[in-house]
Simulated assay, not measured.
Amino acid sequence: MPSSPPPSLQRNSRERQLIAQEAARLVAESGIHDLEHARRKAAIKLGITSEALWPRLSEIEQALREHQLLFAASSQPGALRLHRESALQAMQFLHAFQPRLTGAVLSGLADGNSPVILHLHCDDADAVQRFLHEQRIPAESRAWPLRLAGHPSKQHFPGCEFAADGIAFELVVLPEDALRQPPVSADDGKPLPRATLAQLRQLLALEA
């Protein structure tokens, strides 16, 4: 018979699971949408300070899927569809900036409170703000920390956020080089999942 894992490994696995579950609860119930922030806050709340014991972001995503199946199975799919349709309209509107959809709306984890996160690409960091101003869309400036492929550390990239028809939008302005060297995951350094306008159209067609 296979032997049981050592108690230390069992404890480590249990701690990772507890953090993942608490982080998922925070995302679902407390309005936190950044998984890294949710992970850190959950770990602090549980008193697990060693980052070696923290779950990967993919584990938190899985815990969030399970949480949504248990507590939001009737409402989450409709909210996700609405957010994806809104993302499609926004990407059409912002097509000149070569938008890419990322985050919970792409992964399928979005709920009614999730923002639509779009990466825009332009070497003129102020061009998006000027465009929104010309279109009479009020937006607040903000910066987001991201690490691009080929870079050793995170940088803060400008952008803005606004709401339309009750849905929040976060527009992050990246240099055009980020089309070839996209943002990467804090966990494994792999490119973040991102979708073009054509890919989002295909995703919506598959769901219809």
Rank of each mutant, 00 (worst) to 15 (best):
L148V: 12
P5W: 07
F93S: 01
P6S: 07
Q17R: 13
Q62T: 11
S86F: 10
L35R: 11
P77T: 06
S30T: 05
H95Y: 14
P6H: 08
D187L: 07
Q202P: 02
L206S: 08
P55Y: 01
L171C: 05
P182K: 13
G47I: 09
I32D: 02
F93V: 03
R40E: 08
L26P: 01
S153C: 03
A168E: 12
R81D: 04
V116S: 06
L94P: 02
P55T: 09
G31T: 04
A168W: 11
A168G: 13
V105M: 04
W54P: 00
S30G: 04
A139G: 05
A195K: 00
I117E: 05
E22D: 09
G166H: 15
L70Y: 09
A52E: 14
Q62C: 03
S185E: 03
L88Q: 14
L69F: 14
F97Q: 00
P175Q: 04
S58K: 12
L70C: 15
E170M: 15
H119F: 10
P182F: 04
V116F: 09
N113M: 14
V27T: 09
S30H: 12
R136L: 08
I117Q: 15
E66C: 03
S13T: 11
H119M: 13
A186K: 15
D165G: 06
V184Q: 04
D177F: 02
G108I: 02
H37N: 06
A208G: 10
G112F: 03
L53W: 00
R81F: 13
G166R: 06
S3A: 13
L69W: 07
